[in-house]
Design a protein around this nucleic acid. Sequence first.
DNA 1: TCGAGTACCTGGCATAGTCAAGTAGTAGGC
DNA 2: GCCTACTACTTGACTATGCCAGGTACTCGA
Lengths: 125, 125
Amino acid sequence: MVPTHDPQLLKGVLSLLLLRLLAERESYGYEVVQRLRELGLSDIGEGSVYPALARLEREGRLQGRLVASRSGPARKYYRPTPAGSQALSEGTESWLSLAAVVHPVLVRRLPDPSTTTLPTATEDT
Amino acid sequence: MVPTHDPQLLKGVLSLLLLRLLAERESYGYEVVQRLRELGLSDIGEGSVYPALARLEREGRLQGRLVASRSGPARKYYRPTPAGSQALSEGTESWLSLAAVVHPVLVRRLPDPSTTTLPTATEDT
DNA sequence: TCGAGTACCTGGCATAGTCAAGTAGTAGGC
DNA sequence: GCCTACTACTTGACTATGCCAGGTACTCGA
């Protein structure tokens, strides 16, 4: 099984993913959830996506429009505004630079603990 | 200019980094802040690190001990407990699998918007 | 009419990073 | 003795944001 994802790790990343997916293709909430799940975020919920979309629209990063559907209620299609596109590129840069710090640290080999010396009361750097 | 880091992106990642750095070498808060800054997290503050360390200790993932210093107040050295080591490996796995989803999406080329068709009122999937 | 699938929204909650301020110890200069 | 700077830790209030649970409502087929 896929390891249970830590909700905290998604913070900030979700809105980035939303901006990105909507920059690739205009889409509505319900579909975005499906697209996220297809990407591998299997346990993402509507309760995470809809509020995030609403917030991004409120902040002027997304612009939505209602389109009637023949298979259910009207869909609200979102696409990034210019401000949204800028937020996307800035956010992408932030994420990449953070990942560039985090990744190498997490994958480098742990030193053998038995060879390390421990600080004692009187030692000082 | 380095892009201002989004505080949200650090959520969850910070405790992972702390566990990792302390698994590599026992260390105290003030020093951990310096180690993080050397890694490139230049605008990390003490107010983020100390509470995180305290929380990890409270949760039984870190164990701390006081060591007197000749250059200031006593230092509180932390090292991971067995539970902390397990949290580290689980967290690392979570982070890697999330990054494996996020990274490709963020770096793939955006399709040319002019070639895409927009949904209209009567279309349906 | 009833259930299932589609589609959206909301309130309340928990988590965790940030800011600002405070407390103390050591050491050097005057 | 006093002041400043560096070291070192702590705390309270604030904020952002994902998650859960529940609700509304439309379409379609049995």
